[in-house]
């Protein structure tokens, strides 16, 4: 995992987005472009892990940025801008997930194929040149099964698992994004981890 993902945001002494946000609140779209550039990757990864579909995740990120632009005047800086922004993307992802579940309740979801139906697949970072092809294939297979297990969690458990164990946010930050108490976040995370562990034991066989 790269540095920004694992480094908790609360280590930052200052909100690096503050100046750009202020310009955006005065209607400066160029300043918003800076924020898009800065946060699009993390937002996409949150959406992708919650939804399990790359194309859907891209749509959700677009909608989230648009919502953020429309509502940026109402942002008062009580929390970090990034916390506010990631809260928006989680909300959009949740809404999209509920719609998808309602539409294809009896269909097999796209979690078996993270690329999604007919999708070109997620763009990944360039693989290490020394890595063997079969190892990459095995890793991809394991990732798909892990994602499958994430997709089997309830939406509320999925969110906290993605935000805490994949994205590395603190309990406080997660509570701010989801408007939950820290205790509720911990409780959900406990259940999410237990359910994921059971699923992985099931799909990966003799493991660990």
């Amino acid at each position: 995992m790269p540095g920004p993902v694992t480094a908790p945001l609360n280590r930052m002494t200052d909100d690096e987005d503050a100046a750009a946000v202020l310009r955006c609140q005065k209607g400066d779209a160029d300043a918003f472009e800076v924020l898009v550039e800065r946060h699009q990757k993390r937002m996409l990864n949150i959406a992708y892990r919650v939804l399990g579909d790359y194309d859907e995740a891209c749509d959700v990120v677009q909608e989230s940025f648009l919502s953020a632009w429309r509502a940026i005047r109402s942002f008062r800086g009580e929390a970090r801008f990034s916390t506010w922004l990631y809260g928006i993307v989680v909300n959009h992802a949740r809404t999209r997930l509920k719609k998808a579940q309602a539409l294809s309740r009896h269909e097999r979801t796209s979690i078996d194929d993270p690329a999604g139906p007919g999708g070109e697949g997620p763009r990944r970072e360039a693989p290490d040149c020394g890595e063997a092809a079969d190892e990459r294939l095995e890793k991809k297979e394991i990732e798909a099964r892990v994602q499958q297990c994430i997709g089997q969690l309830d939406a509320e458990h999925r969110e906290v698992l993605v935000l805490r164990d994949i994205q590395g946010f603190t309990y406080e930050e997660i509570g701010g994004m989801l408007h939950l108490t820290e205790g509720t976040v911990k409780s959900r995370l406990f259940r999410a981890r237990a359910a994921l562990k059971d699923c992985l034991v099931r799909v990966l066989g003799e493991w660990p």
């Binding site: 995992m1 790269p2 993902v5 779209a29 918003f32 472009e33 898009v36 550039e37 699009q40 990757k41 996409l44 990864n45 992708y48 892990r49 790359y54 995740a57 891209c58 990120v61 677009q62 940025f65 648009l66 632009w69 997620p122 763009r123 990944r124 970072e125 890793k139 394991i142 990732e143 892990v146 994602q147 698992l161 164990d165 994949i166 981890r193 994921l196 562990k197 992985l200 034991v201 493991w207 660990p208």
Partner: peptide, 30 residues
């Protein structure tokens, strides 16, 4: 051990990259 392995699997998940058109599309709509 299972929980640690599970946590390791999650942290081992790779990151996806945003498509090059994403920012342009967002800004066009903005």
């Amino acid at each position: 051990a299972e929980l640690k392995a599970s946590d390791a699997q999650l942290k081992a998940l790779g990151e996806v990259e945003p498509p090059p058109w994403l920012k342009a599309r967002v800004m066009a709509r903005v």
